[in-house]
Design a protein around this nucleic acid. Structure first.
Lengths: 335, 335
DNA sequence: AGTAATGATGTAAAGGATTACATTGGCAGG
DNA sequence: CCTGCCAATGTAATCCTTTACATCATTACT
């Protein structure tokens, strides 16, 4: 692989000029520029990133960690983040942490070692190795949280109003006449699960149903919801609100396995609006999140920090939407 | 951030010794090692990767590109790849190419620029910018193909026997008495779709059904299969074989939309065995791929090449398996 | 005791790009 | 024609680490 020295020699200029041609073409005479570019093409020269990043102390990369890459919800977020990063001249390094704090820390090390310029994390935990950094640098620490949001972490974040979305789901079920409603939450450490639970409780309270909510804990995966739904069905609920579409799929499967029909016997509503949700059987009613936009805005926030401009807003709340499909219907006891 | 020079000064040794303590602890006296480590801890020193990689010409990273990160099939492959990479001391940079050759090229550039040491690509196209490299270096080019396989590309690859898997699916349907079978393929540029089609045709031929196969082209996404299934159903097929589980979900949805039942009126069989497949309604019969193992083996092959050992096998064919669930049943005209 | 071998550590040269500062030459204005 | 400025380009230091080679001190052996 050719180096900048060989290019400079072949073009009859100094390395400084070659470097300038590549990074600030305007500061070089047109004739020289053309000549250098010609040689660059001929030698198929590519700047060595290690050398560049050693000198500039910047990596032109941002790290994006997701708690579970097999969750299709994150795929759309990743898409949006990648686009925004590309627009800003950054490449994205993607890390799958599998909800494992140790792996989260390993990835976060990349930031400490300057392998990447910043971090967008979609989980709910700030990796331990970054706590000191965030405490020290505050708002100018190159770390942004997406999807989840915990005020105590102290980093900017992008998310929807989870409590409001959750309340909308409950309102929808109540409107359909449901009174015995099962709620399959996420793990209690997850702030968005807590927010959604709070929203659901508040909405239920408005209708005097607070104590009739049947709560069960899930882990956002279909399996856990399948199990939870089984017992909820035996408790006689007529509707199930799941904190993720995957769990809704597991719940629908449990309804079928119990010999019941969704939505005739049991309505099911999810959360996220996965691309596949409309192909579920029955098509899934759910609370849609603006997934791509969450990713995009999170990266834009991070890039703003990296550029040194103080972000206008440190917390971005995007709009959610109730998508009515076929998995919810009137409560069976309604007449 | 402390540098190795500061550490050396604080520990009263040379930078060479510090470097050795970190990379080859055995070559240093125990007392010195302890002393240096103490300072390393105290100063929270982390080697600068840019400098290291500049000096060693290695990045300790491998690039993994997937054609579509929102396809959960790849998630499991990615998991396996990451594990194997970690075991071998490499980090994984993940790229989502969205089937876009331009994006594929952009990622491949990372290899040319030595930002990564090698590439595992899960698509079916060798990025154009790497053709020269592969032609020049042949088997020692640090490039491996996973899932897909085209002999003409000339790089090692890991995959299942797609033709055989596909034949198994057809055999299963024929065994159940189906004669009018719809097949929803992938795009014809995809070699695995071609292989699966060939396998399906061969199996059909064995039963004299070659000309009764109803072929339609899909794109592995649920949408395309939903549309294709609609017309196939109107043609009177009693079974649908889809080249991906996502398409099978789309097909099942079309069966329901046509007022028919799966599997009573139309059986559906998929391909991949996504983690969610057993929660589909009905639970999906499918051809399972060893997804994690494909990722793991692909990385191991690549690491072998990077270590300079000639790979024992350049083509690895792993085992697939027919998973019988509820979406396939006896043909309705069977008695 | 002298020599060889071994082990521990130090010295200093890369590795490739960027950029502050220096230099050159041309041109405008007086 | 001289001065001063500007644009274009060059010089060389710098970023931080690894590692071949050199050095020195021990130990083992004859």
């Amino acid at each position: 692989m050719a180096t900048i020295i060989e290019v400079a020699a072949a073009a009859g200029v100094s390395t400084a000029t070659v470097s300038r041609v590549l990074s600030q073409p305007g500061r070089v005479a047109e004739a020289t520029r053309a000549k250098v570019m010609e040689v660059v093409e001929a030698l198929d020269y590519r700047p060595n990133v290690a050398a560049r990043s050693l000198r500039t102390l910047r990596a032109a990369k941002i790290l994006l960690t997701v708690p579970d890459i097999s969750n299709p919800f994150f795929a759309s977020v990743i898409r949006g983040a990648e686009e925004a990063a590309r627009d800003a001249g950054y490449a994205v390094v993607l890390g799958d942490t599998r909800h494992d704090p140790e792996v989260e820390d390993q990835y976060a090390e990349m930031l400490s070692r300057r392998e990447v310029d910043g971090l967008v994390f979609l989980g709910h935990r700030l990796p331990a190795s970054l706590e000191a950094l965030v405490a020290r640098q505050g708002a100018s620490a190159p770390v942004v949280n997406g999807c989840e949001y915990s005020p105590e972490i102290g980093v900017p974040s992008v998310h929807i109003d989870n409590a409001a979305g959750s309340a909308d789901a409950i309102e929808h079920l109540v409107e359909l006449g449901h009174r015995e409603i099962g709620v399959i939450t996420g793990p209690p450490i997850s702030p968005i699960s807590r927010d959604r639970l709070a929203g659901a409780l508040r909405a239920a309270e408005r209708h005097g149903l607070k104590d009739r909510l049947h709560l069960r804990e899930g882990d956002y995966g279909a399996d856990s919801a399948h199990r939870a739904a089984r017992t909820l069905i035996s408790e006689g609920v007529t509707a199930l609100f799941c904190f993720s579409d995957e769990m809704a799929l597991g719940a629908i499967s449990a309804v079928g396995a119990a010999g019941l029909s969704c939505p005739d016997d049991v309505s099911v509503i999810g959360f996220d609006d996965l691309p596949l949700a409309r192909f579920f059987h029955p098509a899934l009613t759910t609370i849609a999140q603006p997934k791509g936009m969450i990713g995009r805005r999170a990266v834009e926030l991070l890039v703003g920090i990296l550029r040194g401009s103080e972000p206008a807003e440190r917390q971005l709340t995007l709009a959610h939407e109730l998508i009515r499909r076929a998995s919810t219907g009137p409560a069976p006891n309604t007449r």
